Amino acid sequence: MTELLIADDHPLFREALRGVVASLFPSAAIYEADRIANLYPLVDDHPDADLLLLDLDIPGAIGFSALVHLRATYPSLPIVLVTAHEEARFVRRAMDHGAMGFIPKSIDSQTLGAALQTVLEGGVWLPETDTTAPGISLDESAVAARLRELTPQQFRVLQMLSTGQLNKQIAYELDVSEATIKAHMTAILRKLGASNRTQAVLMASRLGLNQDEPQGTSTS
């Protein structure tokens, strides 16, 4: 049985994806997440899924960081980005970070179906775009390599930190103690080679869609 995971916060778009998948694969099992916090447990429960359709703008994500982390944790899981960001530079960065496809949300259902069919058959699907767009920088590549060293929990802590949450807020959401979060932060700083929380967030922002505007941080 074909298993597909959909990570998108727009109910109407998830419904459209379900319709296309159902027409192609009537017996497919489809599982959904509407935010990053729900996506990671979903992938944990379905590590052998045939495909993950990931929206770049899903709440809780920082640009390409979720793609980088999931590719490192589940290297056999094909991931296709489904996004409203259609610029050639985003397509190139997505492929450099290991995506198996890049599907603009503006395409019609017939093209969407063809794209899904291609990826599920082991191919790569890309929109017609400028093939001369620059790839990721050496700096972005180095940051991605360091992010791959984080454990899933450490990565979640870093993402929550990047959205400005305090230690106590992160601890509450993850149902752990503040001492545990501080221990995670120590490990995160060591693995990233960062000297403090702000520097760690600045590094993570290198994988953001707008690399020049990192998220806000807190020091407590």
Rank of each mutant, 00 (worst) to 15 (best):
N167D: 14
N167P: 08
N167A: 13
N167C: 09
N167H: 10
K168C: 07
K168V: 09
K168P: 02
K168H: 13
Q169G: 11
Q169W: 06
Q169S: 11
I170W: 03
I170M: 01
I170C: 00
I170V: 10
I170T: 03
I170E: 04
A171T: 07
A171G: 05
A171M: 02
Y172E: 10
Y172R: 14
E173Y: 08
E173F: 05
E173Q: 15
E173R: 15
L174F: 00
L174N: 00
D175K: 15
D175H: 09
V176M: 13
V176W: 02
V176T: 10
V176Y: 00
V176C: 10
V176Q: 03
S177E: 06
S177C: 00
S177L: 03
S177I: 05
S177P: 00
S177M: 05
E178Y: 10
A179C: 06
A179S: 15
A179K: 14
A179L: 13
A179E: 14
T180D: 04
T180F: 11
T180P: 01
T180H: 12
T180R: 08
T180L: 11
T180A: 13
I181C: 10
I181W: 02
I181K: 06
K182G: 00
K182I: 10
K182Q: 14
A183D: 13
A183S: 14
A183R: 10
A183M: 11
H184D: 09
H184A: 09
H184S: 09
H184K: 05
M185C: 08
M185S: 04
M185L: 12
M185G: 04
M185W: 08
M185F: 05
M185N: 07
M185Q: 14
T186S: 13
T186E: 08
T186G: 06
T186P: 04
A187I: 01
A187Y: 05
I188N: 00
I188T: 02
I188E: 01
I188W: 03
I188R: 00
L189R: 01
L189T: 02
L189P: 00
R190E: 14
R190L: 12
R190S: 11
R190K: 13
R190G: 09
R190C: 07
R190N: 13
K191I: 04
K191M: 07
K191E: 08
K191Q: 13
K191L: 14
L192Q: 04
L192P: 02
G193A: 06
G193T: 02
G193M: 06
G193H: 05
A194N: 04
A194V: 07
S195N: 11
S195K: 13
S195C: 03
S195Q: 11
S195T: 15
N196G: 12
N196V: 11
N196Y: 12
N196K: 11
N196H: 15
R197A: 06
R197T: 12
R197E: 05
R197Q: 13
R197D: 06
T198C: 08
T198N: 14
T198R: 15
T198Y: 09
T198E: 15
